[in-house]
Design a protein around this nucleic acid. Structure first.
Length: 585
RNA sequence: GGGGGUGUAGUUCAGUUGGUUAGAACGCUGCCCUGUCACGGCAGAGGUCGCGAGUUCGAGUCUCGUCGCUCCCGCCA
């Protein structure tokens, strides 16, 4: 190939025996038998065993060099005396004739070979060593392939990739901004974009028709296991003269193809993905991001507890509370302790307790004794329960019961091992409410994104109860993870002013905060719609990787610090002065 | 901002009811070893038990405080 190597460490096979080759890479492992030394040489492509004999003067040269040093080896490809069937290159080895040490390694602070259970702090500080590990290295490579596929699929569907600004204006909606002080404009700040939302809409107004971008997004919020602090990437897309269905089709094709290509033996939901209206999702799954690998569905049992005989729940209903039922298939024979565990959980969560009826061997346990024969038969019919099944009942205030039932649904699914772990289940959550009521003040607020179009347009805004208006707003959900958010945008200044007015904002507020966008809409704006699937999360789902940092090259830690680059850091007084900033710590 | 978990050698961990000199594995250093592939064998170095106070004749172990990390809630398209 060149002066450093003729082959990579992954490509030599039996057919190369007899050839003189040159390899370069890291010393993965070293086995010194005294008068014979084996070195496993590793590079991006694989591992090749090299052998050194004490009869050669090379032996002294490599005897003292540590693992992870970078060396080059010239030698002959020979057949191994003992073949290693576990290695792709296991038929051959390199009989070393010359060694070049390019870079000797110090004693390592973290091990590159073997299990990876060092503290994450150390791994992040020495990320370049961590990234040499097989798992992390291949995670990152898979991420590259996913992004490459995204670009190919979007291009294929007529989308072009455009770069939008990184230094932009702070936007009042949504997350906390990262601010950048302006040297040329004393006292003023740029913000890093939380997403290219306004720019991609402006691109539509500029007539570009179909936009996408592998877009960096910045948000100054606290992290989670599936939420990296600081920055993340999304496949941002927008299209003109398009409906909700048009956007869904593009995303279904793009994400569906990617999940199918990287399914690794799992089954994948095929397009079109199931549509679940928001309110139905909250009732049936107790969440707006349901994990459909769990087959359980929550039922509204409120009507059932109308003089049912079970006084505690009848009273709850009379009190305005709601009851939910979750069937536990084939759990009728479970011991008392199984059911008590859930009851204890409900008590711990301040939900009173959890009643159950378990049907087994023709009998019924739990709170069955409160029900008449007829009521018990009605129960079986209403909640589709057979002999051998059980059903849980839980009650609570309207605001909390759905979410609680959603957690219990997952707990029961886990306890009975009902999750279809060998599947990737995708669905759309649609018909999000446009507004919601602030629980404390009672005021009407935007529930999601104020840029989306209310269903029914201006007429709906003028005639309907705001809390009944739905938005052309939709989420793509995969295995219980919110993967993407999309919307038909509001491209009409008139509708936008009215929408903000209902949420209590004057026209001037709209003009001030979204002036660029609203002005643009006055000069000919096409109807448009778009969506933005998260890339980090997509890769996590493909790899079934619970920690987002394991799909990111150089992630920040929980305090949004880069332990390797030591960012954030103090800067010189001069720099501060130049930015017209006065620090008060 | 709130709650849970956690902190012992470079790393992963063990450490009994509070009791003599705090152990093991990996890694590191030295010696031996010509077919290993997690090579093996022998020897060795390496510790303010996160930090501070308290109880006690005696604290890695009990109590209080504090700090770091991590997970969750709040927050977050």
């Amino acid at each position: 190939m060149n002066e450093y190597r003729t082959h990579t460490c992954g490509e030599l096979r039996a057919e190369h025996i007899g050839q003189s080759v040159k390899l370069a890479g890291w010393i993965h492992r070293k086995r010194n038998l005294g008068n014979l030394c084996f070195i496993d040489l590793r590079d991006h492509y694989g591992i090749t065993q090299c052998v050194f004999d004490s009869s050669s003067d090379l032996f002294d040269k490599i005897k003292d060099i540590r693992v992870e040093s970078v060396i080059g080896i010239i030698g002959e490809v020979v057949a191994r005396e003992s073949v290693n069937k576990n290695m792709p290159t296991g038929d051959i080895e390199i009989k070393a004739e010359e060694v070049i040490v390019y870079s000797a390694a110090d004693v390592l602070p973290v091990q590159v070979v073997g299990e990876c259970n060092e503290p994450e702090e150390l791994r992040l500080k020495y990320r370049f060593l961590d990234l040499r590990r097989e798992v992390l290295h291949s995670n990152i490579l898979l991420r590259c392939k996913v992004i490459s596929e995204m670009r190919r699929l979007m291009n294929e569907q007529g989308f072009n990739e455009y770069q939008t600004p990184i230094l932009t204006a702070s936007s009042p909606e949504g997350a906390r901004d990262f601010l950048v002080p302006s040297r040329l404009n004393p006292g003023k700040f740029y913000a890093l974009p939380q997403s290219p939302q306004q720019f991609k809409q402006l691109l539509m107004v500029s007539g570009f028709d179909r936009y996408f971008q592998i877009a960096p997004c910045f948000r100054d919020e606290d992290p989670r296991a599936d939420r990296s602090p600081g920055e993340f990437y999304q496949l941002d897309m927008e299209m003109s003269f398009a409906t909700q269905e048009d956007v869904m089709k593009v995303i279904e094709h793009t994400m569906g193809t990617i999940f199918n290509e990287f399914a690794f033996g799992r089954s994948v939901s095929q397009a079109p993905f199931m549509h679940i209206p928001f309110r139905e999702s909250m009732l049936k799954y107790g969440s707006d991001k349901p994990d459909l690998r769990n087959p359980l569905i929550i039922a509204d049992a409120t009507p059932f507890f109308n003089n049912s005989g079970f006084g505690v729940y009848d009273a709850k209903v009379a009190n305005g509370e709601q009851i939910r039922a979750i069937k536990a298939p084939n759990a009728g024979n479970k011991p008392r302790s199984f059911f008590d565990k859930f009851d204890a959980y409900a008590k711990e969560q301040g939900m009173g307790g959890m009643a159950y009826v378990a049907f087994a061997d023709g009998g019924a346990k739990g709170v069955a004794k409160f029900f008449s024969e007829e009521k018990l038969a009605e129960l079986k019919q209403t909640f589709d329960v057979k002999d051998g099944d059980a059903v849980f009942f839980m009650g609570g205030a309207k605001k909390v019961i759905n979410k609680f039932a959603g957690v219990v649904r997952n707990m029961i699914g886990e306890a009975l091992d009902l999750f279809d772990k060998k599947s990737i289940k995708l669905c759309w959550i649609v018909d999000f409410p446009f507004y919601e009521e602030n629980e404390e003040t009672g005021a009407v607020e935007f529930s999601h994104n104020p840029f989306s179009m209310p269903q029914g347009g201006l007429e709906a805004l003028n005639t309907k109860n705001p809390l009944d208006i739905l938005a052309y707003q939709f989420d793509l959900v995969c295995n219980g993870v919110e993967l993407a958010s999309g919307a038909v945008r509001n491209h009409s200044p008139e509708v936008m002013y009215r929408a903000f007015e209902i949420a209590g904002y004057e026209h001037s507020v709209v003009d001030n905060k979204f002036g660029g966008l609203v002005t643009a809409f006055r000069y000919g704006a096409p109807p448009h719609a778009g969506c933005a699937p998260g890339i980090d999360r997509t890769v996590m789902l493909i790899l079934d990787e619970p920690i987002i940092r394991n799909v990111i090259l150089f992630p920040l830690n929980g305090k949004a610090q880069d332990l390797m680059m030591q960012a954030p850091n103090t800067v010189t007084e001069e720099q501060i002065k130049e930015l017209h900033i006065d620090l008060k710590l």
